[in-house]
Computed example of a mutant assay.
Amino acid sequence: MEPHGTVVHGALDEAELAMLGLHAEQLIDFSSNINPFGPPATVLAALRALNPAPYPDRSCLRLRQQLAHLHHCDPAAVLVGNGANELIHLVARGLGQPDTTALMVAPTYGEYAYAANLVGMTIAEVRSTAADQFQLDRTALIAAIEHFRPRLLWLCSPNNPTGVALDTATILECAHVCARYDGWLILDRAYLSLTRDYTGCDPLDSIAVPRLIRIYSLTKSYAVAGLRIGYLIATPEVVSTIARFQPAWSVSSAAQAAALAMLADPAFLPTTLPQLWAASDELVAGLRQLGLNVWRAQMPFMLVQSTDATFTRRQLLTHGCVVRDCTSFGLPDWVRVAPRRPAENARLLTAWQVLIPKYAHTGDV
């Protein structure tokens, strides 16, 4: 946990940099899972043309209409938020109940447990391990749902930090078992649009699933994390219940304008995703050539094994490279690395090569 009690996250921390005498412009951020080939020019043009004087549209009507068209649903089934993070907390407040169980499929994003804790829920988890190549046993997962009967089941697929994605059949089975016990499956799809074979849609769009809430992020694949824009899809009744806890004007005019520009740009993702995956392939190969143990699944980001993740992060930081210490995920001997552009990846490989004699830990997952 960070000093003010919230969840540990990646990205640059200005307070930490000031303490170390470093400046953000000196560093390359490999800790944030963001498309390094963005933002799109269309988004930047939309932001330059924006008049910031009026209040933003409280209902995000135009954006909800476009998202509904994308997902083949009613605009009333869409709730736009100040990033996926706000939506996670809104779901916990709207549907969570004190003294009920929130089940986590770990290792995973820490904000789920934090949000559930804030509403007085009991946290349980089922965990995959490196020994099993971070693959979650379907039978064990269903058994955990049957045992804990969670009010909320949080499932990130593709998962952060492991990159593992569950198949549609498993997701549907989880949703149906949750529904049997009056629970909800909250499916975090923040990374779906970064998959290698992403087609621009979610296979779940065409399936009616009871008690399923899907959360999406627009900031990662389009590289606009500073704007904070995400959305969820559920039944209109559930959206109405959750939206009661959202402050007015939560989503800025800049975020709405940027999102509309992203959705109107058909070329950006098809152009940049192959570049991102080529950079990821090259970085994986380079790290393995250094003798490092690298795990990568359905995401371009990867886990790299180290004897001490915290120390490795600090040492790479002194060489101008920021990676994600995975200790907070319960993985103290792994760091997460998101690929950057080829020249930046080469700088990371050079920095890591200096550390190998003392810090590298090799071996097979």
Rank of each mutant, 00 (worst) to 15 (best):
Q65H: 12
L204G: 03
G320I: 05
A165T: 13
R336E: 13
A297G: 09
Q275K: 10
V239R: 06
C73G: 07
T199S: 06
N35R: 08
P274F: 06
F148P: 08
L44Q: 12
L212S: 00
S32W: 10
S59E: 12
V354G: 04
L194E: 09
E16C: 10
A102C: 15
T122H: 14
P339N: 03
R347D: 10
L212R: 00
M19R: 15
N160S: 11
T312M: 12
Y181L: 06
Q256P: 03
G5M: 08
L331Y: 09
A113C: 11
Q133E: 08
W154T: 09
M19V: 14
P339D: 00
T271G: 05
A343C: 03
G21Y: 03
R189S: 07
T42Y: 01
G226P: 06
P247M: 02
R288Y: 06
P158W: 04
V323I: 02
H147T: 15
T129P: 09
P300D: 01
G200S: 08
S306N: 13
V365M: 09
R340M: 01
D57P: 09
L212I: 01
M104D: 14
I229M: 04
T312C: 11
P342K: 02
A124T: 15
T272A: 05
R180T: 13
A351E: 00
L292K: 01
L192T: 02
A140T: 13
T307W: 15
V8R: 14
F30Q: 08
A343W: 04
L95F: 05
N85C: 14
E125V: 12
F329L: 03
T318V: 05
M1Q: 15
